[in-house]
Design a protein around this nucleic acid. Sequence first.
DNA 1: GCGGCGTGTCATAAT
DNA 2: GTATTATGACACGCC
Length: 619
Amino acid sequence: MTMEMEVMHSSQQDMNLIDILWKQDIDLGARREVFDYNHRQKEHELQRQLELEEEKRLHLLREQEKALLAQLQLDEETGEYIPCPPPSAPLQSAITPLEVTQNVAFTEDNRDAMSFDECLQLLAETFPVEETENTSVCLDTTSVPMMSPEQPALPLATLSPGPLLPSPSPPPPPPPQPPQRMSPDLEQAWMELLSLPELQQCLNMQLEDTLETTTYPLPNSSESQNPDYTFYPMTGLTEGETNNVNVCSAEFMNTFDGSVPSLAPPDNLSQMKTKAPQLHTNYTAESFCDVFYPNAIPEQSSGQHGLEGNESDTMSDIPNKPPFTAADLYSLSPGEVSDIGKQSRVAELPDSDSGISSNTSPNASSPGKSVYGDGSFFYSDSDMDEMDHNPGSAESDYSEMFSINFQPDDYHLAASVSGPAGQKQQEKKPKQHKSDLTEESGHNDAPFTKDKRRKRSDVRLSRDEQRAKALKIPFTVAMIINLPVDDFNEMMSKHQMNEAQLALVRDIRRRGKNKVAAQNCRKRKMENIVGLEGELDSLKEEKERLLSEKSQNTTNLKEMKQQLNTLYLEVFSMLRDEKGNSYSPSDYSLQQSTNGSIFLVPRVKKTFIKSIGNHLPPV
DNA sequence: GCGGCGTGTCATAAT
DNA sequence: GTATTATGACACGCC
């Protein structure tokens, strides 16, 4: 009792002090509740209660995912998990569910899904303090249809606990909003989120986990039509490992570009803008994913845990992540929203439930390219090379695919520098994203900016990088290209690589060097052009100068001739013969001999006089 | 739709 | 003979 009294006494003193402080701060906008311990305690209890409920939901979803996984069977040939098909189910049957999913995502769930504001309000009520800030951002992401298969977790558990399985439950897409609503502030918020080093690491890890293969499934194979899982083999995944974060981040990265712009309510932009730095500091990748995909981790842990060795996931895995379909991804890609037909086609060829980024969506001026590239995405490296050697066939598509699936701008920096330096550069990636996306968002009416060209170059470079990652080349592309031949050979000798890897490394080095050579060549060509233009100008100037000099010389020559003629006549007029008569200029002329002597020569007798010239009298 | 421009890539010759 | 470099030509994307 004594202690309680002391506590109460001290609490009373605290409250008095708080009152004083509050009165001092009231003009600063501080509410009285801020200093109210009881109020905060209630909030804390409410928060804990809600957290417990959330955990229960997560547990339930884990169970659902396990049940879903149980319906999958491992394809020993491809190492992929595919849904247990009905005995007579044709290949196309594997595609159909995705289409259904896509349709559902665009129709039915739109009606039942929480609106963005509702979600935001719910989260704001649920997590009144810091979580509210973070989850508000999360809601932004979860409300994005392109987000990830885990997105529907929250609304799935809270709003539509009905038929969850086996039919894939599409995400509860928020009401489609025009891309114009995307603002630079929102992009900045996303950039802040993306600046999380853990996310960058996740992005790298997803690439490092790609399966080492020399051949890819056939492009038309439905099992391999999910290019995303070609590079998400989930090798060595164990439950709870960072690959959960990996997948999460990858999908997050993919959703970032395209999905966000169209969904961010302007109302929340300011909030996101101000909260983003907090996210940056408070959230690790795991917690980040936990918040963004409440049931994502369990799903990835249990659902894809068994996908070890899969070099490409299959359509069958799509139902595992029903809310996240390629159609969803494309649905919000700027400029592609209206092209539902192509989206459907993409859904048939699941581009990637993690790979498509809006970064390339606007860049993918030709969505058909992406669709077309789906096939090439699964070509073996040799096939890729063949395509490379067949310009116009599938090369560009192939590169486009890589650009779609692998944030080339980011990875370019990551791969160009290895080690901690590379990590540092990775941390800078969001800035590049930010600038790019800011520019893109700032030019919604003109989605194509000059950065696109730079992006294309990044895409191309990224292609080799991705191929290197796909074949698990233990070097960075920058190293492969830039190392001196001796160091390069030494490096190669230190690693045992198969033929495909060696060929790829050689090709990468050749292409990289040739690219630099081409750039230098063009640079030299331009310099030559500039130099020649300068030389042309100087030659023109010299020509003008010479013409002027010629004109001046001509004038001078005329003057000299005039003077000479005058002098000639003057001298001639002074000449007299023996009789004192003057010589006529028409009959005589003055000529100078080689020894300087001047002779008077009769014009008519010129030839004759020449013969007797020496006998003529000197003048 | 067409043309210009920038870029990557390939083929080939030169080094 | 091989690797590298230089360059013309082509394809592609973007404007």
